[in-house]
Design a protein around this nucleic acid. Structure first.
Lengths: 352, 352
DNA sequence: CTGTTAGCGCCTTCAC
DNA sequence: GTGAAGGCGCTAACAG
C-alpha cells in the first residue's frame, strides 16, 4: 500500500531498442488501440488513419511482440506436428505438405519427434496443453499420453487435433488417410492377375493400425482371387530395410518359395530384393516383389519397384488444411481419404 | 477517467479452467513471488515452504503460462532451424540430431523450410528477429536476407546463430561442417589408386559453397596423382537424381568415356548408375561410380554405392550443442569440423 | 470510427 | 526467507 517500486519488473530489454505499439501510436497521432485495430482489421479503421498508422509502422520498423500478443489473445500462431521418426523419408515428404499449407495460413510449425520414447510423448502432450501451440497434427497413431490400447492416463488436450496417416480409433477428431485396406487388396489382386498363387506378405509391426488394414486388404484380395490364405506365407516385419532383408532370408531358406512377395513398405521391398539378388536369384524373373508407399527411391531401385503410390504431399496439405479450418472456427469433415494408385514398374512379372 | 469497465480485457479464457500461479500461492499460503522463486531457484526458499509449494503445484496441476513467462523474461525456449528442403533425406537425418540435442536442453524446434523461396526466407528472418525464438541454426548457406553474393538488405538478427553444413563466408558465427575439400580429394585419389585416369566429376549447383570445396578437392586429388585436369570431364549437376540421370546420358553419348565417375551426391550417383544400366552397361565393370553423403539408400543400391560418409546425426548434435552453449551465455568454437570416411562398397573397381 | 481502460500471467525489485 | 506491487506489450470491451 505504498506507491514505490517505480522500476519494478524492469526485465531489461535487448540493447537494440525496438519500437513498441506506443511509439507507433504517438507518431501517427492515434491511440494504441487504433494501431492494434489497423493491424488486425484494417477495414474497421478509416482509410486516412490507416495510411498514417501504416506509415508510422514503416518508419519505426515496428513489429508486434508475439509474447504480449499471445498472452492477451490466447493464440500462438504455432502448430505442433508429432511424428514417430523425423529421419524417415516417408514422413519428411508429408511434412513438406504440412509446412507449405501452414505457412500460407500464417502458422509456424513445431516438430515433435517421438523416437519411440514415452517420455518425449508425455513432454509434447504437456507442451501442447500448456498452450504453446494453437493445434496439433498427430502422425503417430494415437492420442497424447494414450497407448495404442487406449490405456494410460490421457492428458486432456484442449486444442484442435488432427490425425494424419495412422487413424486413431475412437478419437473424435478429423482423420486424414488413405484406404490402406483397398490399396493392399489392389496390389494383391494385381499380383494374382499376373498368375501368382503363392503370394507372401511381409507385415508391419504387430498392433499397428496400418498393418491391420493392409493385412485385411491382402486377405480380401486373396479371397477375391480364390486363393486360400496361408499363414505360413505371412512374415513379420517392421517397415525397415533391415526387416526386409531378414524376411528375404527367411523366404529363401524355404523349400516351397512363394513366386511373389508383397512387402507393406518400399523399404522392406528394397531390402528384400537385395537379399534375393545376393543369393544369385533375379527379381522379377525368379521372384516378383512389390512395395507400398512409393518413396523416392522406389523409382530408381534396380529393378524399379512396383508399389502403391501414396500422395504424401497432399496428405500433409489436407491435414494442415483441416487443422487450419478448425483453428478458424470452421468445420471440417470427420474423415478424409485420399486416392492411392498402383504403380507398375519392373519388379513384378508373371511367374516362370 | 471514470472507474468503470470492470471486466475490460477479459479475453475469455478456455472453458477448462487452468490453475494460475495465484491459485498455487493461495493453496500454499504464500505469495505468488514465492511460488515463482520455488520454481526458478528452489534453494532460495526454505525447505518447508518449498514442499508446500510443490504440493500445491501438484494438486492444482499448475503449469506456468509460457506467453506470460516469455513476455517477462524475453525467452521463448524455442529454436528456429532453417533449411533448403525438408523432404530431402540428407537433411532429415541431420534434423534428428538437432532435435535430440535441443530436446535434452529443453528447447523446442521450429522448422523453416525455404523451398527456394526468397519470400519465405524473408519471413523467417522477420520471425527470428521478432523474438519468437531464442536462436537459430542455418542449413542454407547464407545469412537471413542476404543472398549468397552478400547483396541484398540483411535484416539485423539479434539472436545467436549457428551455421550447419554449408559454411557462411564472412559471417562471425560458429560453423559446423565437414572438410568437403579433403573428402573429395580422398575419393578422387581412391579412384586413381584403382588405376583410373579418366575420372569424370558431376558437380553441384554453380556458386554453392559445398560445390566449390568439393571441386577443389577433386583437382587436388588429380594433381596429387599426376593426372591432368580436363574441363571436359566436368559435368553440371544439382545434387538431384534427375541431374544424375542427365549426366549419365551426357557421358554415355561420348566417344571417349571416362572409366570412373565421381558424383558429388549419392542421389546423382544412383541416377547415373541407373542410366548406365539402362544402356546395357554394368557398374562397376564398365564404369566405376562413386557418390558423396552416404544416405540410407547408398548401402542398398545395386550395386551398393562407394561414397563419402558424413556423420549427419553428429553434425546436427554438434550444431545444437553449439547453439545451446551460446544461449546459456557460454562460448563455443568458431569452427567445428567433423570427420568423414571413405566407404568402399561395390560400385567401384579397377578399369577393365 | 476512435479513445480509454483494464488486465492477460508472470517475474522481479524493493522493503522488511 | 518472504510479501507487495508494478509492469512486460498488447488487445478486448466499452463508451462516445
Amino acid at each position: 500500500m505504498d506507491g514505490h517500486g517505480r522500476k519494478a519488473g524492469s526485465g531489461r530489454r535487448p540493447a537494440q531498442q525496438v519500437a513498441r505499439i506506443h511509439d507507433v501510436a504517438k507518431l501517427a497521432n492515434v491511440s494504441t488501440a487504433t494501431v492494434s485495430r489497423a493491424l488486425a482489421s484494417p477495414d474497421r479503421v478509416s482509410a486516412e488513419t490507416l495510411a498514417r498508422v501504416l506509415n508510422a509502422i514503416a518508419s519505426t520498423g515496428y513489429v508486434p511482440n508475439p509474447a504480449a500478443r499471445s498472452l492477451r489473445s490466447h493464440k500462438t500462431g504455432m502448430v505442433l506436428v508429432v511424428l514417430p521418426d523425423l529421419a524417415n523419408t516417408f514422413f519428411s515428404r508429408i511434412l513438406r505438405g504440412v509446412e507449405e499449407t501452414l505457412f500460407e495460413a500464417g502458422y509456424g510449425m513445431i516438430i515433435g519427434d517421438l523416437d519411440g520414447s514415452p517420455v518425449k510423448e508425455a513432454h509434447f502432450a504437456a507442451f501442447a496443453s500448456a498452450g504453446r501451440v494453437d493445434g496439433a497434427i498427430l502422425l503417430n497413431g494415437h492420442l497424447f499420453g494414450q497407448s495404442r490400447e487406449g490405456k494410460g492416463m490421457p492428458v486432456a488436450i484442449n486444442i484442435p487435433l488432427v490425425a494424419l496417416c495412422e487413424a486413431i480409433p475412437n478419437a473424435d477428431i478429423p482423420q486424414i488417410e488413405i484406404d490402406n485396406r483397398l490399396s493392399a487388396e489392389t496390389m494383391t489382386r494385381y499380383l494374382a492377375s499376373l498368375g501368382h498363387r503363392r503370394i507372401a506378405y511381409v507385415s508391419g509391426p504387430a498392433g499397428n493400425v496400418l498393418e491391420r488394414e493392409r493385412m485385411r486388404g491382402y486377405r480380401d484380395g486373396l479371397e477375391a482371387e480364390q486363393i486360400a490364405f496361408d499363414a505360413g506365407l505371412v512374415i513379420g516385419g517392421d517397415y525397415t530395410v533391415e526387416s526386409g532383408v531378414a524376411a528375404g532370408r527367411d523366404l529363401l531358406a524355404r523349400e516351397a518359395r512363394p513366386t511373389a512377395v508383397f512387402c507393406t513398405s518400399d523399404e522392406m521391398a528394397i531390402g528384400l530384393m537385395r537379399t534375393v539378388h545376393s543369393h544369385g536369384l533375379r527379381v522379377p524373373r525368379d521372384m516378383s516383389v512389390a512395395g507400398f508407399d512409393d518413396i523416392e527411391f522406389a523409382a530408381v531401385a534396380e529393378p524399379a519397384l512396383t508399389t502403391i503410390h501414396q500422395p504424401r504431399r497432399q496428405l500433409g496439405q489436407a491435414a494442415a488444411t483441416a487443422l487450419v479450418s478448425l483453428l478458424s472456427g470452421r468445420t471440417t469433415p470427420r474423415s478424409i481419404r485420399l486416392e492411392t494408385s498402383l504403380v507398375i514398374r519392373e519388379s513384378t512379372a508373371p511367374p516362370l
